[in-house]
Amino acid sequence: MSMMRGEHIYKSFGDLDVLKDVNFEIAESEVVCVIGPSGSGKSTLLRCMNHLERISSGKVFIDEEMVDYRGDNKDLMKIEHKRVTALCMELGMVFQRFNLFPHLTALENVTLAPMEVRKTPKAEAIEKGKAMLKRVGLSDKADEYPSRLSGGQQQRVAIARALAMEPKIMMFDEPTSALDPELVGEVLEVMKDLAKSGMTMMVVTHEMNFAREVSDRVIFMDEGRIIEEGTPEQIFGKPKEARTRAFLSKSNVKI
C-alpha cells in the first residue's frame, strides 16, 4: 500500500520551474532516499509532500487520501482543511537547520505538540517524551535548552520531537547538511535505527553512504525531474543514466 504518492507534480516559484512532472510513491515501511545536485528540486519535492509548499499542479496523496490537488486551470479542489491538517500530522518532519523551539527545553520541545495538538495529558506526554529522548540517546539532556546542545544533539531532539507525534512517515530534509562532519554519524545512527524499526522514511540527503546502506530505494533527481530510481545496488552499482553517473562520480562514489 502506498503511504505517500505524488502524481504529475509541478512547482514553480515565479518564472522558475522547480519541479516538472514528478511522479513517485513510497510504500509502507519503505526507506526512500532522494539524491541529486543542489537545485535539483529534491527538497522542494519533500516540502510539497508535506504541505509546507503548495504545488502548482498535480496531486498529493497521503495514506491513499488526497491532500492537495491542482488541475490545469490551477483551481484548488475543495479538500477540507481539517482533514488536510490531520493527514499532515501523520508526517514527521526533520529540517536541515533543526528548527527546534529555542525557548523550550529539549523535553518541552518534544512534549509541546502532543499536549497542544493531540491533547495528551501532561504526565503522559512527559513520560512519552522522555522515552523519545531515550530513543535518540539524549535522556540526560532533557532539561537543557537547545542553545546548550551541539548540532548533532539538536538534530536528535528534532527527530524525537517529530516521533512524539507518532507519525506514519518520517521526512528528512538534508538532516546532516548543517552539521560539523564529526557530528553527522550520531544523527545517521538514529536514522538507521528508525529505518530498522520499520518506519516509512523519505530522506533527502547528500550522504551517499547512508543512502547506499539504509535505503530500499534511491531516487536520483536533476533539474526538477526524477531521472532514475531503483535499488541502491542499481543506482550506485550500475546507473543507467549518464547524468546519474556524472553526479555520482562528482560525489566521489565508486560505481
Partner: peptide, 19 residues
C-alpha cells in the same frame, strides 16, 4: 523555520503564535 516547525508538528495558527 519556527513557523514551519510548528506547522510540521500540526499546530494551528493560534497555537503557533501563543506557544
Amino acid at each position: 523555520g519556527q513557523f514551519e516547525a510548528a506547522k510540521a508538528v500540526g499546530m494551528n495558527h493560534t497555537q503557533t503564535m501563543t506557544k
